[in-house]
């Protein structure tokens, strides 16, 4: 298929994202659920968070997040819960570890190097 196959598969039914019956009555909890949902990647979709995805797994995870919130879990605990089961791929912001260091250190190093050259030229 030469078509934009992926768009086809993952967006064609996209209108079924967050359903009204998933929403919690408690507005504060719902707000937190939304924030957590935006941190988690829908695993079968292409680069969408679970909050705005219609995939089955995204819906299950949305329900899970809300269930854990009702059990008074903190945001961190909930993200950790999902992370333990699905691995790094599910997190949109990778955990700071030795192997993800480069992601922060390379840009920072680049910036400092440029600034260094700039101010050296001042002299």
């Amino acid at each position: 298929m030469r078509l934009l196959t992926l768009i086809l598969i993952f967006f064609s039914t996209n209108l079924m994202c967050l359903e009204p019956d998933e929403i919690l009555d408690n507005q504060n909890l719902e707000k937190r659920a939304k924030q957590i949902g935006q941190q988690l990647r829908c695993l079968v979709c292409q680069n969408e968070d679970i909050q705005n995805s219609n995939a089955d797994i995204a819906k299950d995870l949305r329900i899970l997040v809300r269930k854990l919130l009702l059990q008074n879990k903190s945001d961190k605990e909930i993200i950790k819960f999902v992370h333990e089961r699905y691995g790094d791929f599910v997190l949109f912001s990778p955990p700071l570890r030795l192997d993800t260091m480069g992601l922060w250190l390379l840009p920072a190093g680049f910036f400092l190097l440029m600034i260094f050259f700039f101010f050296r030229r001042q002299k």
């Binding site: 695993l43 079968v44 089961r85």
Partner: peptide
Amino acid sequence: HDGMVSINWGVYG
């Protein structure tokens, strides 16, 4: 039925 065991196993598809 609710997919929660699947989540515990990290099943995504």
